[in-house]
Computed example of a mutant assay.
Amino acid sequence: MTDDLAARIRAELRTVADPERAPGQQAYMKSAMPFLGVRVPDARLVAKRAAKGMDAATLRATALELWDAAGYGPR
């Protein structure tokens, strides 16, 4: 279940991504982590849609899966 939800979230984020914004976001955050160029309001909308009807345990597991798959440190 979390694999499917994580995949849907990734796909939705890519549809609202603006690759031209990504370098500026990465520089602002002073991070080696890659950015998609997704604006915060768009990311919130994607998250809100994904969370609709989901229980807290599934959402937490999905968030951890997304974070772990990004490979940016232990939780």
Rank of each mutant, 00 (worst) to 15 (best):
M33F: 02
R8K: 12
L59G: 14
T62G: 01
D3Q: 13
Q25S: 06
Y28T: 11
L59T: 14
A47G: 02
P19G: 05
A7K: 06
A63I: 07
A70D: 14
D18W: 01
R60T: 13
L36K: 02
P74A: 10
E12D: 14
R49D: 08
A7N: 13
W67Q: 05
G71S: 04
R39L: 10
R10I: 01
R8G: 01
A50L: 10
A57F: 12
R10D: 07
G73A: 08
R10N: 07
W67C: 09
K52H: 09
D4S: 15
K48Y: 11
Y72N: 08
R14L: 12
G24D: 13
G71C: 03
L59A: 05
L5K: 10
D18I: 13
R49H: 09
P74R: 11
G37T: 05
D4L: 09
V40N: 04
T62H: 00
A63T: 09
L64E: 15
A69S: 14
A11C: 09
F35M: 15
M54R: 15
L5W: 06
Q26F: 04
Y28I: 08
K48P: 00
D4H: 10
L66F: 07
M29H: 15
L59V: 10
M29K: 14
L45V: 03
A50Y: 02
L66N: 09
F35Q: 11
A22S: 04
D18P: 02
L64R: 13
E20C: 07
I9V: 15
L5E: 15
L5G: 03
L64C: 03
K48W: 10
R14M: 10
D3P: 11
R14T: 03
L36N: 03
D55F: 11
M33T: 15
A17Y: 02
L13D: 01
A50P: 09
A11H: 11
K30W: 02
A70K: 13
S31H: 05
G71L: 04
D68E: 13
Q25N: 08
R44F: 04
R49K: 07
R39W: 08
G24Y: 09
A11P: 05
R8W: 05
W67F: 13
P34N: 03
L36G: 03
A57C: 12
A51N: 06
A27E: 14
G37M: 06
L13K: 00
T2I: 06
T62R: 00
F35S: 06
M33P: 02
S31Y: 11
E65R: 15
A56H: 10
A70L: 14
G71D: 03
P74F: 02
K48N: 06
A11Y: 04
P74K: 10
D4E: 14
V38G: 00
R60F: 05
T58M: 08
Q26T: 01
T62Y: 00
P34M: 07
M54L: 13
T62Q: 00
T62C: 02
M1Y: 04
A61W: 10
R39Y: 08
M54G: 03
R44Y: 04
G37F: 11
D42I: 13
K52G: 04
R14F: 03
L5R: 10
M1R: 13
L45S: 04
R21A: 01
L5N: 09
